[in-house]
Design a protein around this nucleic acid. Structure first.
Length: 780
DNA sequence: GTCTGCGAGGTTTTT
DNA sequence: CCTCGCAGAC
């Protein structure tokens, strides 16, 4: 249809601008609810956005609209997310809508990164210098250990970790040491509060903050300094918050302060997807939004653009069992699609075998887009992953595990970064302590203690007192000499850094080489040292993306994920938590056994609340699926190498027959015959409706592809060469043979004994592996 | 200051 | 069962 054009000779330009504005794509393909969410820019607004309902689209369109209508300048919009990934995504999406504006939007970011920005400016208001360092968990633990030692608190009785988790919990709730409740003061025989306050003092002395402090310091500054509060309240004309259901008390206070009376605040979230209660998220924040803001508007986004009908219905029915929710009902106009599949297996191994075959099945038969990249296995606990890794490894199916140890948290990477930190700012005690004896310089615990006591006496930082130590005749000659060598080197590197005589990448390389750090790993014979060297190279590479060391260091303290930009076709294995926000054509949800999922511990610790959070996790899992969702459970699971017989998850009670289909393998449901014979009268929760509902043959629609038969067909005709090798146990490897391993790459066999082989991998070093996972070259 | 052996513990995790 | 961390022995 042609758009009517009004000609206005006087104001031609204005009109054409307006027209262009209207044609902007961000408004065109929004539904009514989304448009409402975009246009209700004044006053408090809560957008309840169900899974896959175009939440980010609404948010970014809203920003585009605000800018378009000139309600605010780009730098007057505060948009807060939880993860860097989400912030980045938002920026990218805005850039799609309006060109060149993102550079002018400095206030899109995570709670933490925005807090850093504010805190760098006003840090002295909470008694720290603006070059404060940001601690990660490892640093925190180290500090707590030191405190426990000094205070003579038995680590055996209360682990440093338990102190830290208490402290974290308090900080999430914005509780300072003085504000700990009388009851909680008694925790750990009163040691918890004591350690907490010593810890806070220690951080101040170190000129350091932890993640919790980033928010709390900002809250404190805003609370106590009206002029600063006003500055930010005036600056931010509009506030947008993503994933509001995940906010904790500290973040809530942070938002309320910045929001002020203007209340142009838009919170987007989904109470049904609140799965981080255990780390301080308060669903209550979203549930009581209307009370907080009496004139609040609430808009629900319920049209799902992701999944087919049966999947949406299954998810809706499941979540409907939760009591504490605001209530949404997702709907979709995408086709009816496949029913959600349910299957049981004898044990976890069979489950993995079946799923691996189903994965191949999808790749081979489904003309829809079901490549490996479009499939995912979502587990409750990470120990479940191994069975799948093993299976995929032996079948040669490429996979990626999401959420493993993060790049910047690895030992060698942190060491290297500490070197850089010391050069940039030698006041950083934590960094200096980390590198002072790496590689080994003969400066051990004792020497370090001496240096620390000197620095306490002189009121200096660790590095400065190390410089002084030779005058003081503090250490023995050998330690002193090697410490001096280190100091000389650091001074030399500092000179390069200050004079800028070499670029930061070269400098980093020099530091790692001259310090002996690289050669330390080169001389290390342990199997993982080649991998560590590889990571150091990666780190140098990462430097290239930044202008200088300062930029780099500022970023990595908050960005702890390394984007694996893998283009290869691989299936993803991850936890349900890690899957939030993602979508896949085919989703496998294994391990639906009571006790594993829902997790026994959640239920024990938090009762009904815990169970509801687990159910939300299940909801998140199902709603990740676009076309196929396969849920499975086993009768026997090996946990810590002990066999446990399991009952199917109580969540099956919430699934309706008309939307699910029970797949039969060899002996359908025989697996839990025993369980069904158990009398379930004693506990109502255990009276699974499985028998009544799902055992009946479901009325399958004609057009629906027959998954079961395909599976069989594949088993008979399409056993891969790799499979044949495994089945027939044709694995005649010889010593010295060149082999390939999915995970570790190429290598040579050093020793072989039965199914165990010792391999010297090119990259990963020496490792013991099962011959099942090895391939020789002509197999690949 | 560094190596080895024993014992405990082994959901979910971002910043 | 397997991994990590600590304590005691060199």
């Amino acid at each position: 249809m042609k758009k009517p054009i009004k000609y206005d000779n006087k104001n031609n330009q204005v009109v054409s601008d307006l027209l262009e504005k209207r044609q902007r794509n961000y408004m065109l393909d929004l539904n009514d609810q989304q448009i409402k969410a975009v246009k209700s820019v004044f006053g408090p607004l809560l957008v309840l956005a169900g899974a896959g309902t175009g939440k980010t689209k609404a948010l970014t369109s809203r920003i585009a609209y605000i800018l378009d209508e000139n309600f605010a300048f780009p730098n007057q919009i505060l948009a807060v997310t939880f993860t860097n990934k989400a912030a980045k995504e938002m920026k990218n999406r805005i850039a799609l809508n309006i060109k060149n504006v993102v550079e002018g939007m400095p206030w899109i970011g995570t709670f933490h990164s925005l807090s850093v920005k504010i805190l760098r400016k006003y840090s002295e208001y909470v008694g720290i210098k603006n070059n404060f360092s940001i601690l990660d968990t490892e640093d925190q633990i180290r500090i707590i250990k030191q405190i426990l030692k000094i205070e003579n608190i038995d680590e055996k009785r209360y682990s440093p970790r338990s102190f830290l988790s208490l402290i974290d919990r308090w900080k999430n709730k914005a509780i300072t040491p003085e504000k700990v409740s009388e009851e909680e003061k008694e925790f750990m025989e009163g040691n918890a509060t004591k350690v907490f306050s010593i810890y806070q003092n220690r951080l101040k002395n170190l000129n350091a903050v932890d993640f919790g402090d980033l928010l709390l310091h900002v809250v404190e500054i805003l609370r106590n300094n009206n002029e600063i509060l006003k500055e930010y309240q005036n600056k931010f004309k509009f506030i947008l918050v993503d994933e509001y259901q995940d906010t904790n008390v500290a973040q809530y206070l942070w938002l309320r302060l910045l929001c002020g009376d203007k209340k142009n605040i838009c919170c987007v979230g989904d109470d049904d997807q609140s799965i981080y209660g255990w780390r301080g998220a308060e669903v209550g924040n979203i549930l009581r939004f209307e009370k907080d803001f009496p004139d609040a508007k609430i808009i629900k986004l319920e049209q799902n653009y992701r999944s087919t009908f049966h999947i949406i219905e299954t998810a809706s029915n499941l979540i409907a069992s939760n009591k504490s929710r605001l209530g949404k009902k997702l709907w979709t106009s995408i086709s009816e699609g496949e029913k959600v599949k349910v299957i049981s297996h004898w044990d976890g191994n069979e489950e993995a075998i079946w799923i691996a075959e189903a994965v191949k099945n999808f790749v081979q038969y489904d003309d829809e887009n079901c490549s490996l990249n479009n499939q995912a296995i979502l587990v409750r606990a990470s120990f479940q992953m191994r069975a799948f890794e093993d299976r995929f490894l032996s079948m040669g199916i490429p996979y990626r595990v999401i959420g493993g140890p993060r790049f910047y948290e690895r030992q060698e990477v942190k060491d290297a970064i500490s070197y850089l930190k010391v050069v940039v700012s030698s006041e950083n005690d934590i960094a200096f302590e980390r590198i002072i004896n790496k590689p080994k310089r003969g400066i051990g615990e004792k020497a370090l203690q001496k240096l620390y006591s000197l620095s306490r006496k002189k009121g200096l930082n660790l590095y400065s007192s190390a410089k002084l130590s030779s005058n003081e005749r503090l250490l023995n000659t050998k330690s002193q000499e090697s410490l001096q060598r280190l100091i000389d080197s650091v001074e030399r590197w500092k000179k390069i850094y200050v004079e800028n005589s070499k670029n930061h990448i070269e400098l980093a390389q020099i530091i790692l080489d001259e310090s002996g750090y690289t050669s330390m790993w080169k001389n290390d014979l342990s199997p993982d040292s080649p991998g560590r060297l590889e990571n150091l190279k990666e780190l140098i590479k990462a430097l290239e993306e930044f202008q200088n060391l300062d930029d780099f260091l500022e970023h990595i303290s908050l960005i702890l994920d390394n984007e694996q930009s893998e283009e290869n076709d691989k299936i993803s294995i991850m936890t349900l938590h890690a899957a939030k926000g993602l979508e896949f054509n085919c989703v496998f949800l294994p391990g639906w056994e009571d006790g594993l999922f829902p997790s026994q511990r959640s239920m024990d610790e938090l009762g009904k609340i815990g169970l509801e959070e687990e159910r939300r996790l299940a909801y998140v899992g199902i709603t990740r699926a676009k076309k196929n969702c396969l849920i499975s459970f086993v009768s026997n699971r090996r946990i810590y190498n002990q066999w446990q017989s399991c009952y199917p998850s109580r969540f099956f009670d919430d699934l309706l027959q008309e939307h699910t289909e029970v797949l039969t393998q060899t002996d359908p449901m025989n697996n839990f015959k025993d369980y069904r014979n158990l009398d379930s009268n004693n506990d109502k929760d255990l009276s699974y409706k499985f028998e009544n509902k799902n055992l009946k043959k479901s009325t399958t629609q004609k057009e629906l592809p027959d998954f079961k038969n395909r599976h069989k067909e594949w088993q008979n005709d399409n056993i891969t060469k790799v499979e044949k090798y495994i089945l027939n146990e044709i694995k005649n490897f010889k010593k010295g043979e060149k082999i390939f391993h999915q995970k570790f790459g190429y290598g040579f066999i050093l020793e072989i004994e039965g199914e165990n082989a010792l391999i010297d991998f090119k990259k990963a070093g020496q490792k013991k592996v099962k011959t099942n996972y090895l391939f020789n070259e002509n197999e690949i």
